[in-house]
Write a protein that binds this DNA or RNA. Structure first.
Lengths: 242, 242
DNA sequence: TGAAGTTGTCTATGTTAATAGACAACTTGA
DNA sequence: TCAAGTTGTCTATTAACATAGACAACTTCA
């Protein structure tokens, strides 16, 4: 690593930030990799450590790097663009990004429908549901933790099928539903809880995007409802017209 | 003309300067043309007039614009217009362009006249000549490298005088020649050689205009002959009727 | 000759950038 | 458990940037 030439009219911290960004773009620092310490960067550029901190803060705000107190500053993997449309399929989206999608069954339980769930799925209160907990990843990097509810009557072996096929789209196909669409999508943000933090390999306190959605068949019949928590630092939702 | 978006970490004056430079490059301001007044530019960019002045000063230092008190700031022609007439004086031409001319003695040697040189200067073959190597610049920017031959008998201390006066016109004046004219001018083009490239601050392979000329006194007596190499990217020769 | 418009210069003030040093808080590995 | 290395935070000082207003010096044109 070497210091770049300094130019007039551009703040030092900006020049340092641009230099580091270029290094990341060039692959001199790999995604997930560790940058040199702030002191070392300061020496390389011949500037004060505070100036380096300003540069890193600017990069962190843009999501390019992530500082971890006591251990270092790391290059963030680029966020996966995750389009939200009426046809939203995790596998297809990840595949489109040239990555290897994977759904992993964590747990599945049978439970009676609460009032809210019953309303969403157009079932009677207390109707039998499966709650399927899944972890979705791209190229082995955890992307989201999802909880999906669906009728245990209409999809009697959903947990087994999901465990085998690793995709909710394929579960529905297994029961003869070739097409479905998203009826509603609600997005909020929260802080990761301990269980999700472990599954998603996130540090405590990191933000998660929470997506609550209802999928319906072509005729409008509710099929499933889910609540997924996405590692905010690994995805960005893209709202596009259908 | 419209204001550009402002960005963090880059000084305002620099952003204004970059904006104006881009406008010049785009042809929105024509070479030799007048920029809007400082007050107007300030309004367009939404900054203080002093900030605009700083921007213009930076551009002026780089030779892109030239401010004229009382009348305005003008875009400099990319290339210096270099009229070729019977009265061709480097200093006068550069001065007319609002630039600071300078001639610098690089080397001077005594050598016998070759057949070609003897013919041009109307001297005997083998007659003693001075060969003067000079670098000519405008506002510190190298314009041409010239080799001049003149009689060592008629101009006994030509190298010393040139080193002191930095102008061939003044050398001739020193020897009582108040007026002279160009007898012939031949123009060709070539690629810069290594030595000239270094002196002219040109990248290897750049084109140079080669001018071979003979100057004579009012009575037609040959005074000097020269071969000058001009950085083609910095000058344009203008042929005008006398 | 005079008015309008231009660049040049001066003083003043507040904000941002950059440096410097010290220490706290935390992680890692021996 | 401890030492070394890391990021986070605080105070302080100096330089550069940006704004504001006023007026001088000069050019152009009616």
């Amino acid at each position: 690593m070497s210091a770049e030439a300094l130019s007039a009219g551009v703040a030092l911290w900006r020049q340092v930030a641009d230099g580091i960004e270029q290094a990341i773009a060039d692959g001199r620092y790999l995604p997930g990799g560790k940058l040199p310490g702030e002191t070392e960067i300061a020496e390389n550029y011949g500037v004060n450590r505070h100036t380096v901190r300003r540069a890193l803060a600017a990069l962190a705000e843009r999501g390019l790097v992530r500082a971890e107190r006591g251990s270092g500053t790391f290059v963030r993997s680029r966020r996966i663009a995750y389009p939200l449309r009426t046809r939203t399929r995790f596998s297809e989206i990840i595949n489109a990004g040239g990555r290897e999608p994977r759904g992993q069954l964590i747990a599945a339980e049978r439970e009676p429908a609460s009032g809210a769930l019953a309303g969403q799925l157009d079932l009677a209160i207390g109707a039998p549901l499966f709650r399927i907990e899944a972890l979705r990843s791209a190229d082995g990097v955890p992307i989201s933790r999802g909880t999906t509810w669906l009728s245990a009557v209409r999809f009697p072996d959903a947990p087994k099928v999901f465990a085998a096929k690793r995709s909710m789209t394929k579960v529905l196909a297994h029961y003869g539903i070739s097409d479905y669409r998203r009826l509603s999508t609600r997005i909020t943000a929260s802080v990761v809880d301990a269980a999700d933090a472990a599954r998603l390999d996130l540090a405590a306190g990191r933000p998660v995007l929470v997506v609550e959605s209802i999928d319906v068949a072509a005729d409008g019949t509710p099929l499933l409802t889910s609540r997924a928590r996405f590692a905010a630092e690994r995805v960005e939702f893209v709202i596009e017209p259908d």
